[in-house]
Simulated scan of single mutants.
Amino acid sequence: MKFYFMHLMPYADLDLSYDEKHNSAWVTLPNTYYDPKKAISSITATWTSSNMPTRLGFDGICVNEHHSNAYGLMPIPGVMAGALARRTKNVKIAILGRALPLLNNPLTVAEEFAMVDNITGGRLIAGMVRGIGAEYHSWGVNPAFSHERFQEAHDLILQAWTQAGPSVFEGKHYNFEYVNVWPRVYQDNPHPPIWIPSQGSTETIEWAAHPDRKYTYLQTFASVSTVARYMKMYKDVAAGYGYEATEDQARLVAAALCGGDRRDRPPGS
């Protein structure tokens, strides 16, 4: 069993009376509630908390991506991952994960992850997600194309990491005449490990468990019965493909530490 520490870096100085005027801390909460001078304490607390896992023997530290909210101040998790990379020596740095369908140019993720992988000397875990509904509102992206944009962006990133460049990529949503990412990934056998977090999606499980991928699927915090159902689903899908899933392929995100209170969650959560 392995343990990873996760910190969402919420805005700790949020005036909790915001809910008297606003129905959510996501998407529509005015950014005038954010005070950069006070936010320094939130960022400092993140560094302090993130040093703790290395002392306690955690296997890795996780960061993630959220937009337009007070719940998590890491819209570009690669920035935090890069900073953590210089403050740690042995633990894995897991970016859980970049919301690929939101991007007009997924090669930015290929480059960002490759840089972190080089800085850490191969300690990167590359997380890829479709993203929750609130993110699509923040970025003005049509969620109807979420699945196909995610899968096509994934294919583009994998091509950038595993094929000698420059190469050509032609898809429905993304087209590049020159796929030629510098720097190349440090972990090139064949690429950094890829984890797929999800709140529970049959399509995502079937895609992650496919023999061409066999990616680690992460079930986010849920009831015991829900976790058991999706873990079993992954193993059943793998068996249907003719192989036995390992423990490393199906994992649980038990909690996101320092994640704020209930009112900081998106509408409908």
Rank of each mutant, 00 (worst) to 15 (best):
7 H>S: 11
9 M>S: 04
9 M>C: 09
13 D>A: 11
14 L>A: 05
16 L>F: 08
22 H>A: 07
22 H>Q: 00
26 W>M: 03
28 T>A: 00
33 Y>C: 03
35 D>C: 10
36 P>A: 08
37 K>L: 12
39 A>P: 10
40 I>D: 13
44 T>V: 08
57 G>T: 09
61 I>P: 00
63 V>H: 02
73 L>F: 08
74 M>C: 13
74 M>G: 06
87 R>M: 14
89 K>Q: 15
95 I>H: 05
96 L>D: 00
96 L>Y: 00
101 P>E: 02
101 P>Q: 06
102 L>C: 01
105 N>C: 11
110 A>R: 01
111 E>K: 02
117 D>P: 02
119 I>A: 01
122 G>F: 02
125 I>V: 08
126 A>F: 07
132 I>Y: 13
139 W>C: 04
141 V>A: 10
142 N>D: 15
147 H>S: 08
149 R>L: 01
149 R>N: 09
154 H>W: 04
158 L>M: 09
165 G>Y: 12
166 P>A: 07
179 V>W: 12
186 Y>T: 01
189 N>L: 13
193 P>D: 14
199 Q>S: 14
201 S>K: 12
202 T>N: 00
204 T>A: 14
207 W>S: 03
211 P>W: 13
224 V>F: 03
225 S>P: 07
230 Y>W: 15
232 K>A: 11
240 G>Y: 01
246 T>E: 04
248 D>E: 10
249 Q>K: 07
250 A>N: 09
251 R>W: 06
259 G>E: 11
261 D>A: 11
262 R>M: 04
266 P>T: 07
269 S>W: 10
